[in-house]
């Protein structure tokens, strides 16, 4: 990594660690979602084990969406975004690095927390590992897709809800293949590798489409 990229990465990571402990809030929200589900569907452990991967994925999706609206907004409000546009660095890369830092600060803690929460859902060790692995591969895609929504709603004062509405349809494929591959590892006859590789491909696609689209949106937003 060249110097500027490292500087940006460190700055974003520092900011998210120092401001409000966004990682902690995300994990708490994740915990809250997972806790609420049994109250809805009943404490049937077999049922919970069956839908466990889905619950964890939906929890992770919601927790990721929750923190995304500040991804560019904070920088826009204090004028930093204007200067970033003029910095002479490729904006797509800037966004990719910001997403990476954001994922490490908010997405990775979710992945780390997932095995623990899987215990509540009566998942066996194999599925626990499978869910965690799919989350590790899939949550970056959620952040990258979410970056598009974040840059589109950057100028809106209350863009958080709209962001979720815009991003969720785009995130459906990630959710489908994330849950499918986790399920495949547990009971279905489908091999684990097939959906898992598609999930990896989706993340790679998101790593291209996300930064390109949100760079375009951010350039227009400076107007």
């Amino acid at each position: 990594m060249t110097g500027w990229a490292m500087a940006l990465f460190q700055r974003d990571l520092r900011l998210s660690v120092r401001i409000g402990g966004s990682a902690l809030v995300g994990v708490l929200f994740f915990l809250a979602v997972v806790t609420v589900i049994p109250f809805g569907v009943g404490p049937d452990l077999n049922l919970l084990a069956r839908i466990g991967p889905a619950i964890l994925w939906i929890g992770a999706l919601l927790a990721t969406l929750l923190g995304l609206d500040r991804l560019f907004q904070a920088d826009r409000e204090d004028g930093t975004l204007d200067l970033m546009l003029m910095a002479g660095r490729p904006l797509e890369l800037v966004i990719l690095i910001k997403c990476l830092a954001h994922w490490i600060a908010t997405g990775l803690p979710l992945v780390v927390a997932a095995p623990l929460l899987a215990i509540f859902l009566n998942l066996d060790p194999v599925s626990m590992g499978a869910v965690t692995l799919t989350l590790l591969v899939g949550t970056p895609a959620l952040t990258l897709i979410g970056a598009i929504g974040a840059s589109l709603t950057v100028s809106l004062r209350r863009g958080g809800l709209l962001l979720a509405v815009l991003v969720i349809p785009l995130a459906i494929p990630v959710l489908i293949f994330g849950v499918s591959s986790a399920d495949a590892a547990i009971h279905d006859p489908v091999p684990f590798v097939t959906p898992f590789l598609i999930l990896c491909a989706l993340t790679l696609i998101a790593a291209v489409v996300g930064p390109v689209a949100s760079a375009a949106a951010l350039r227009f937003s400076a107007d």
Partner: peptide, 19 residues
């Protein structure tokens, strides 16, 4: 474009390295 959560020097060093 000053981040209150960073120290003064961190703010400045970032811009020196980034721009």
């Amino acid at each position: 474009a000053v981040k209150p959560a960073l120290s003064v020097l961190e703010n400045l060093r970032f811009w020196q390295n980034f721009a």
